[in-house]
Structure formats: C-alpha cells, structure tokens
C-alpha cells in the first residue's frame, strides 16, 4: 500500500499543506481539493483509494460530499474519513449517518491520522 492515493479535502490551503506533509512523509500519494464541488469532481475523476474530508467546506459541505459518494454504487467503496473540529455527539451522529467510515476530531495527532488511514486502507483491501 506504499503508494495509495489519498484525496485530502480542506478549504484552507495551509491545512491542506500540513495534511500533505504528514501523508507524503508516510509514503502516500496525495491529491488535494479546496471545496466540496472540487472534491466530488476529483473523487469521480481520480478514484482515490481513500478520502480525508473536512466537514466545513465551501460550496458543498463534507457531509453532503460524503453522502453523495456513498449513495453512488461506483464510489461507495472509497473509504471516507471525516476530519472535523466538531466535538458534539450530535455532529458525530450526523457524520456516521452520512456513511463516513471514520470520524476524526480535530485537533488530530499526525500519528492518529496515519493509523486511521492505514486501518481504512487495510479494510478496503479486504
């Protein structure tokens, strides 16, 4: 799995750069998107192995991106990890209903992020 392709989605270029930093250092190939519409487009065009998805996104929020992908036979098997600053249980529940495979609360430790990514990629590989 050394060169799995991960689509990282966040509306802040700064945070994207930091996510990229973590993932590239761990040997992954990284695609990026800065808003929900771009994320959908990139997911559909590039078929990444995993998507790291922030909730708060312009145009289409992370929940909706996730729901739209998970409702589609073609893309529903791409693991989605929602990355969000939200802490309440309520949000957590909404997150899970969208069909996200994991839900990580910011601030997230880089190690924890990489563990979650590896776990989801492992599951997807069967």
């Amino acid at each position: 799995m050394a060169s799995a392709r991960i689509l990282a989605v966040d509306d802040s270029p700064t945070i994207l750069a930091m996510l990229e930093e973590i993932l590239v250092a761990a040997g992954y190939e990284v695609l990026t998107a800065e808003d929900g519409a771009q994320a959908l487009e990139s997911a559909r065009a590039e078929m990444p192995d995993l998507i790291l998805l922030d909730v708060m996104l312009p145009k289409l929020d992370g929940y909706r991106v996730c729901r739209l992908l998970k409702f589609d036979q073609k893309y529903k098997n791409i693991p989605v990890i929602m990355l969000t600053a939200k802490t309440e249980e309520q949000s957590m529940a909404t997150g899970l209903r969208t069909g996200a495979d994991q839900y990580l609360t910011k601030p997230v430790e880089p190690e924890r992020l990489l563990e979650a990514v590896a776990a989801e990629l492992g599951k997807a590989q069967g």
Binding site: T14, I15, M18, A85, P107
Partner: peptide, 12 residues
C-alpha cells in the same frame, strides 16, 4: 490552524 500543531506548520 484547524487544531494542528504549530510545529507541523513549521515543518510544512
């Protein structure tokens, strides 16, 4: 910074 550590920003 979205909760990320400033150290990571420095590395970036």
């Amino acid at each position: 910074l979205g909760g990320f550590d400033p150290d990571l920003l420095l590395v970036t």
